[in-house]
Design a protein around this nucleic acid. Structure first.
Length: 475
RNA sequence: GCCGGGUUGGCCGAGCGGUUCAGGCAGCGGGCUGCAGACCCGUAGACGGGGGUUCGAGUCCCCCACCCGGCUCCA
C-alpha cells in the first residue's frame, strides 16, 4: 500500500497508542514468543499466533519488509517431566510436538514466520549472555544456579507497572540462595540424571527468559522493533527479557513496541493445559473450516479477552458463508462491454470500503472493524448483483482485488486452491441432470441430489434463472 | 494486598464528546421459489450501578459492584 499511511499501535511499555515508526525505515524486525512444545496447541495459542500472523501480513501489505522471528521453547521442565514419564528423550518429544504445532499453524494459514528458532540451538549464546551478566555484576552464582539481581536494574517493572517490593505472593517457594525473592534464574543446576548441559556454573538447564534474549539478540542485535506475546507473559517473562537485554547490551530500549494479545477464556477462565479446559486446534479444525476459526478469532480486538463457546464458531461459520456467497455472486456476474452508471457508483463504493478496511487496520489493528468492512463489501456486491447482475471485466478485476486484499491481510483462504474448472464441470453436469428431473417433476430425486451435494459442502440454489451453486465449507 | 484488563441489544462485537449508536449471528414482515435455501428490501432491540463535567457522554472525571489475568510454569 502506501507511504502516507500512518499506523498506530498500542505499546504496553508506554500504555498508550503510538505512531508506528520502525527503527530502520521500512525494515521491521518482530519477535514473538512461541510455544513450549510438550503437548498439542490449543485455541488460546491459535488466538495469539493468528493475530501476529495478521499483523505480519498487514505490515507487509503496507510495504514494510518484515522479518518475523519466533522461538520454540524445546528446553523446559514440562518437556523434561513428560519425557521422563514416557521414557523418551526430551528433545525427541519436543520435536514431535513442534511438528504438530507447525501442522496446526499451516492449517490455520499462519505462514508469515520467517524463522523458527529452537532454544536448544542457542546454548553458546545463552552461555555468553549469562557470563557477561555475571561479569557486569548483574548476576550472581549460587549452589543452585545463576540468578539475575533485579536490584541492579532500576527499570525492572517498567513494562508491567509492577514494583518488585510489592510482589509478595509467590506461587513457588523462592529459592533460598537468592539475594532477593524476585531474582530470576538465568541458569538452573539440575541433577545429572536429568537432561541438561555442562556449563561454566554447573550441570543444568537455562532459565526460560534467557532463551529468548539469546535468540533475539543473535538475530536482531541490541535493538529491534516489535516484541509480541500474550498478556500473561508481560510479567515476569518480558520484564526479565528487558532486564537481561538492556543490562547485557547497555542499549535502551531493547524493544521499541511491546504488543500483547488478550487471552482466550472458557466460561470466563483462561484456556490452559493446567486447567484442563482447552480445545486443541486440531479438534476445532475437525468441525470447522480454518477460515471460520480465523474469522472467529479476529472478530474481537486483539487486546480484549475472547470467551470461547462452540456456539460462537457456529455464528462465525454463518458469517463466513455470507462472505463466500458474496464473493460467488461477484464471480457469477455476466461480463458486459459497456459500464453503466450504476457500475460506476458501485466501483466508488468498493473503493471507499477498501480504504476503510485499511484505515481500520491502521488504527491499532482493528480487525473487528476490518471484518465489518469486508461485510460491507459483500453487501455492496450483493445489492449490485441483485440490481444489475452484470459488470465489465475491468471492474470485476477491481472488485476481486478488493476482496483478495482483505482476504490476504486477514489470512483467509478463499478462491483458488483447488482445481476449480473440474469442480465446476462436475457440478454443472449434476445441475443439468436436476434440470431435467425438475422439468419432469421428479422432485424426490432432484431434492436428493441437492441434499447429498449439500452434505459434501456444495449447496445448490434454485432461482428463476436456473440453478446456481456455492461451496459452503465443511459441515 | 499490589499491578493490568473487562462489563454495549437474544448471542458475538465496533465505538474513544456531536449526522438516526458499525458489522455479524439469530428474529420479524415482504419479494423471489414446486419446496427449501440463498439473495434483496424493510423492521425491532443495548451502553453494569450512582454521582459529576459539558449546550451535548457508551465515549471524559470520581465512587461502587461484578468478572478475568499477572505476581516468577503458561500464547
Amino acid at each position: 500500500m502506501t507511504a502516507f499511511a500512518e499506523i498506530k499501535v498500542y505499546n504496553t511499555l508506554s500504555k498508550s497508542l503510538e505512531k508506528f515508526i520502525p527503527l530502520h525505515g521500512k525494515r521491521v524486525f518482530m519477535f514473538v514468543c512461541g510455544p513450549t512444545v510438550y503437548d498439542y496447541s490449543h485455541l488460546g495459542h491459535a488466538r495469539t499466533y493468528v493475530f501476529y500472523d495478521t499483523l505480519a501480513r498487514f505490515l507487509r501489505k503496507m510495504d514494510y519488509s518484515l522479518f518475523y522471528l519466533q522461538n520454540i521453547t524445546d528446553v523446559d521442565d514440562k518437556i523434561v517431566n513428560r519425557a521422563r514419564d514416557e521414557g523418551r528423550h526430551p528433545l525427541e518429544l519436543a520435536r514431535e510436538f513442534e511438528n504438530y504445532y507447525h501442522d496446526d499453524m499451516a492449517a490455520l494459514n499462519v505462514t508469515s514466520v520467517n524463522l523458527y528458532a529452537r532454544a536448544s540451538d542457542y546454548l553458546p549464546e545463552i552461555f555468553e549472555q549469562v557470563r557477561a551478566l555475571i561479569e557486569k555484576g548483574h548476576a550472581y552464582v549460587t549452589e543452585t544456579g545463576v540468578y539475575f539481581d533485579i536490584t541492579t536494574f532500576p527499570d525492572y517493572g517498567k513494562l508491567s507497572g509492577q514494583k518488585p517490593e510489592e510482589l509478595r505472593v509467590h506461587r513457588i517457594e523462592p529459592d533460598p540462595t537468592k539475594r532477593n525473592p524476585g531474582d530470576f534464574a538465568l541458569w538452573r543446576n539440575r541433577p545429572r540424571e536429568e537432561f541438561g548441559w555442562e556449563s561454566p556454573w554447573g550441570y543444568g538447564r537455562p532459565g526460560w527468559h534467557i532463551e529468548d534474549t539469546a535468540i533475539s539478540i543473535k538475530h536482531f542485535g541490541k535493538q529491534y522493533d516489535i516484541h509480541g506475546g500474550a498478556i500473561e507473559l508481560a510479567f515476569p517473562h518480558h520484564e526479565a527479557e528487558i532486564a537481561q537485554a538492556e543490562s547485557y547490551t547497555g542499549v535502551k530500549p531493547f524493544v521499541k513496541y511491546w504488543i500483547h494479545t488478550g487471552l482466550l477464556t472458557v466460561e470466563g477462565e483462561k484456556m490452559s493445559k493446567s486447567l484442563g479446559n482447552f480445545v486443541t486446534i486440531r479438534e476445532a479444525l475437525k468441525e470447522y473450516d480454518p477460515n471460520v476459526l480465523r474469522i472467529f478469532l479476529l472478530s474481537r480486538h486483539y487486546r480484549s479477552p475472547i470467551d470461547f463457546r462452540w456456539e460462537l464458531l457456529d455464528q462465525a461459520k454463518s458469517s463466513y458463508e455470507r462472505i463466500l456467497n458474496g464473493y460467488g455472486n461477484l464471480m457469477d456476474m455476466d461480463i458486459v462491454e459497456e459500464a453503466s452508471e450504476r457500475e460506476a457508483i458501485f466501483l466508488e463504493e468498493v473503493s471507499r470500503i477498501r480504504r476503510r478496511f485499511f484505515e481500520a487496520m491502521m488504527d491499532d489493528l482493528n480487525t473487528a472493524e476490518a471484518l465489518a468492512q469486508l461485510f460491507e463489501l459483500v453487501r455492496a456486491v450483493n445489492s449490485y448483483y441483485e440490481e444489475r447482475g452484470q459488470i465489465t471485466a475491468e471492474s470485476r478485476v477491481e472488485v476481486i482485488a478488493a476482496f483478495t486484499d482483505m482476504f490476504n491481510v486477514l489470512g483467509l483462504r478463499i478462491g483458488g486452491g483447488y482445481d476449480e474448472s473440474m469442480l465446476r464441470n462436475l457440478v454443472s453436469i449434476l445441475i443439468d441432470v436436476r434440470a431435467v428431473l425438475r422439468k419432469r417433476k421428479e422432485y424426490d430425486l432432484a431434492d436428493e441430489i441437492r441434499a447429498r451435494l449439500r452434505e459434501i459442502g456444495i449447496e445448490l440454489q434454485d432461482i428463476p434463472e436456473g440453478t446456481k451453486w456455492r461451496l459452503k465449507g465443511r459441515t
